[in-house]
Write a protein that binds this DNA or RNA. Structure first.
Length: 258
DNA sequence: ATGTCATCGTAACGATGA
């Protein structure tokens, strides 16, 4: 079972790229972020034609998340139990295989400029995610939480920490919140399956960042203990960043034993 | 001297978010 996460930075502007990448990565489940379209404007027909079931939580202009699955999706929820949010940043559903798994797709707030109200919202959001993860653990159904966390876990997860450790994505308080989430008993799939320094999932459009490999690792897959037992490998599909009309993020794929 | 992109409101860009 291959579970992927990818911030597409607009479904409308990126549709052809998205269709190509979906074929390339051969995942069973894909969490998408930054759709930048309303739920009804999602290109259901084109995606379904490739064999996906879709669950979408969109909004106008900003944010927006979706779950794509080759298997049926059941019990879709579009908010965390712990946060009343007017921004479309969360979606969760059960993927019905012979070993059902609850998949949460999330788009954590960017939080810049920090400090300020946007950073406060980010911290509030990650605290709500922690509470929600706690309730998922209590429910004892296997789950993964995938998405754009807008968090650089450690200095070696960016190209130059002196640039990022004062940014909302790399501030000590952001990293502490990330660790606190993990310490509930969740596993960063990249950390245990690869763990190398300077492996990135995002490169800014500006200043030739990709060519210089000036990236950051901010897209993550967190697994509960039972899913961690099945975890075998992690992949970062870097090629997506070199395509025509690329997103600034690339897909990350976690592979679980069937 | 040296590569940003997408969206919206409004009518060819400026403002905004990332």
């Amino acid at each position: 079972m291959r579970i992927a996460t990818w911030n597409v930075n607009s479904m409308k502007a990126r549709l052809q790229t998205v269709l190509q990448v979906l074929t390339d990565i051969n995942a069973d489940v894909v969490c998408l972020q930054e759709l930048k379209c309303e739920t009804d404007a999602f290109p259901y027909l084109e995606i379904e034609e490739l064999g996906w079931n879709c669950a979408v939580h969109g909004q106008k202009s900003y944010n927006g998340v979706a779950l794509l699955s080759k298997f049926p999706l059941q019990d879709v929820t579009r908010e965390m139990s712990t946060l009343k949010d007017d921004q479309a940043r969360y979606i969760e559903a059960t993927v019905l295989t012979d070993k059902p798994v609850r998949v949460g797709g999330l788009y954590l707030p960017n939080g810049n400029p920090a400090p300020g109200p946007k950073y406060d919202y980010k911290l509030e959001w990650v605290a709500a995610l922690e509470d929600h993860a706690r309730s998922l653990l209590k429910a004892e159904e296997p789950f993964v939480l995938c998405g754009d966390y807008n968090a650089i876990p450690a200095p070696e997860d960016c190209w130059d920490d002196t640039v990022w450790n004062t940014d909302a994505l790399g501030l000590p308080e952001t990293r502490a919140a990330w660790r606190q989430l993990k310490h509930l008993g969740l596993t960063d799939a990249f950390e245990v399956c690869d763990g190398r320094a300077h492996q990135y999932t995002f490169w800014d459009y500006q200043g030739g960042a990709f060519q210089k490999d000036h990236g950051i690792r901010i897209d993550h897959i967190l697994a509960c203990p039972r899913m961690t037992d099945r975890l075998t490998a992690i992949e970062i599909y870097r090629k997506a960043r070199a395509m025509d009309k690329p997103s600034d993020h690339v897909p990350m794929i976690a592979i679980f034993e069937d």
